[in-house]
Design a protein around this nucleic acid. Sequence first.
RNA 1: GGCCCUAUCGUCUAGUGGUUCAGGACGUCUGCUUCUCAGGCAGGAAACACCGGUUCAAAUCCGGUUGGGGCCGCCA
Length: 525
Amino acid sequence: MLAEEFKFIKPGEVRTRMAPSPTGLLHIGGARAALFNYLFAKKNEGSFVLRIEDTDLERSLPEFEKNILESFKWLGIEWDEGPDIEGKYGPYRQSQRTDIYKKYIEKLIAEDKAYYCFCSQQELEAQRQYQMSQGLAPRYSGKCANLDKETVKKYLAEGKATIIRFRVPAKKVSFDDLIRGKLEFDAGLMGDIIIAKDLKSPLYNFAAVVDDFEMKISHVIRGEEHIPNTPKQILMQEALGFSKPSYAHLPLILGPDKTKLSKRHGATSVLEFKKQGYLPEAIINFMAFLGWNPGDEREIYSMSSLVKEFSLEKVQKSGAVFNIKKLDFLNGFYIRQKSIEKLTELCLPYLIEEGLISPFFKEVQYPPAYGAKEIIQKYKISETGEEIYLETIQKIVSIYQERLKKLSEIVELTDFFFKEKLVYNKDLLKWKEMSDKEIKNSLDRLKKLLSKIKIENWNKENLESVLLPEAEKMDPAAQKDRGYLLWPLRVALTGKQASASPFEIAEILAKEKTLKRIKEAKKLL
RNA sequence: GGCCCUAUCGUCUAGUGGUUCAGGACGUCUGCUUCUCAGGCAGGAAACACCGGUUCAAAUCCGGUUGGGGCCGCCA
């Protein structure tokens, strides 16, 4: 049956939309809904529209819209029509479309399909409480449903507070959800719903119906939390004589406690993920697999391969728990795929932000070649004032590439390269049961061996060929355990119990600093 | 409480009546590589919620139970 639905989709006809409300930062749930809309539109060679639902003037803020747009751009979810890209269907902010809504509200009132309601909010709230306590479905009593025209006119003239309600017919409403199949509702249980505060202030359910029609949206793909809204919207479409879009309700993204993911779970905004060092590729890949999969065992997908393979038929019906561990894995995977140049470029801001290094602006070539992205070649190490070249930073990043799960981790992993003095406990230098004397002996041995290596031969390979055979001899138990020499070396150079290879580190640190750190280590004993 | 959605390893999932004592991924555990960590490689543990029914045959179809979730705003 689902396949039937797709037969009628001709390329170019599909139009999906994302309709965020700028009342908060864009979170993962909204981003996933946008992604699925985008994927479905692109898969079918259609258009993806971005509409800003700012009918709630009180809560809508320009900075939130900015955050939402920025988030989509960063993720690579591009819209064909939207707030800053004009299309055929008028402004894309609901606050700029009030004339359109007004026309339809007046039409509904003229046809007596909507009416003015003068009940106070307190009155309504009391009613709701009472109905809930009686185990009834809370719904409007219909008190103002049949007010005679004269009374309405009089109240309106008096300026009595009012809102506009849609007359919900008592009938069964059903629709075919592209993911869930046939869904049926009894509208008789709903009560007349409020569609606008006044002629110029429509509410969500109504504005969305009008816009989806006016903007020729063919498929409404949204979260499962909208299922109860759908029959209401269908009833309004019928009253307005609109054609109906197809609907697909996506499974919810859940927190670890299996309830809808929200701020309560510390749900981070999309841009917060960026700040923490997640890659957009990882987030996209991860979000796509929250409720969707290609049906086989492939799990690594780029945006373009998702576009090729996406289908609503493969979308899951039940909610999916947001598993950060899997995101971390994917992020590490994509970090390992990066070229070292690109990865360094991505890590640099974290090092700078932390104050470890700062760019040498005067060294920058200016103006940069046309079209070339300006990359600063020279940096200054904050603590020592030394110069460090991009090339060296790339080496540092390269030896930590496979250890990085998030870009931000570059700081804690490599800070020792940029520190004047390392702070660590002397016990850290101890391999197995080594005594202070033995550690000192190892350090002396290192000093002697390394001093003999000429600066021009100071590279990883040479260091290994000199140190490795010696390291095996240092094991008092003659088990060729290299740790007796190499562990104190690594700790002396890094001050950490986990790091990259000491040979690679020594190469980057260069002879002078390497020997200096060994000397510093000896002072601790 | 009412209406609605939903149910395979801890998590994301494959599976559309038989070739499945259920496959993959993350996580976890073991081993190898090794000075540590990471990575890589090899391997292990780990699931069809329950009860009925249909059928020669059910994770797969039907009914019920139970569990989980969503919605019940002059928010979206």
